[in-house]
Amino acid sequence: MSNPTNVRKRRGANCLSDFLLDQWRLGTFEIAEDKARASTHLGNCAQCRARLGEIEAVVLPSLDFSGVSPASVPHLVASPTRWRWRTVWLAPVVAAAAAGVLLMPWHHSEERSKGGGWQLGVVARTSNGRVGAVSQGAVLAPGDRLRFEVSAPTDGFVSVISLDARGAVTPFVPATGTATAIRAGKRRLLDGAVQLDDSVGPERLVLLACPHALPVAEAVAAGRAALARAQGHVENVEGLGLPCTQTSFWIQKEMRP
């Protein structure tokens, strides 16, 4: 690291910070002197005008929050989530034409799966940037990214695993290690997220809420055994046979044209 006292030399002494330039372009000055200073300075400083141009030229990521209402937003946990990625193998879009226009049932209600007071909710960000909570049975597509919110009646340990139509059992959150400790509370957004892979068909997202830190491998093994008992039909899977509260959230994965 260079000597920090010398770092702050990239702009002229009176040049405007990005903070002031943002306030200028958005017209949100709190202090009148700031506005007057910015106006005068921009009139005389080509460098700051160029920086303002650069700021205005930034292309915003196309996220769609139109389906979001304040009541539908989960409580964010103290630490922000590091997105974790599943490898996505995009199959040839052979069936895309047959899928037609897919409509995602975005909702504003409190619909979540329930089990012994434990509730699992899903927040999705589609590949076209739409963000919001989704309902049971929502149609999602490969490439969409999911995060999970849990309402916990007691302190405990939770994990979310996926059982899909091709018979695969995948740990979603956490991806490895042991179940995540969670405090009692409503709509806790879990650390970790997944990107849906290219399998299509019904997919069952199972929340396991346990009194102990269940190893993820144990949850996956229980899921595989349950699928085997159901002859591979995810719709017919019943309990996973673990000493945990279990609740499911169904999604339908289809290719999006």
Binding site: L26, T28, E30, L63, V68, V73, P74, L76, V123, R125
Partner: peptide, 21 residues
């Protein structure tokens, strides 16, 4: 962006009271 704006929508009254930037 996604997480900050989800937080914002959850705390909309705070955001509206504060200086946005």
């Amino acid at each position: 962006c996604q997480d900050v704006f989800l937080r914002l929508f959850r705390s909309l009254p705070d955001f509206e009271r504060a200086s946005p930037v």
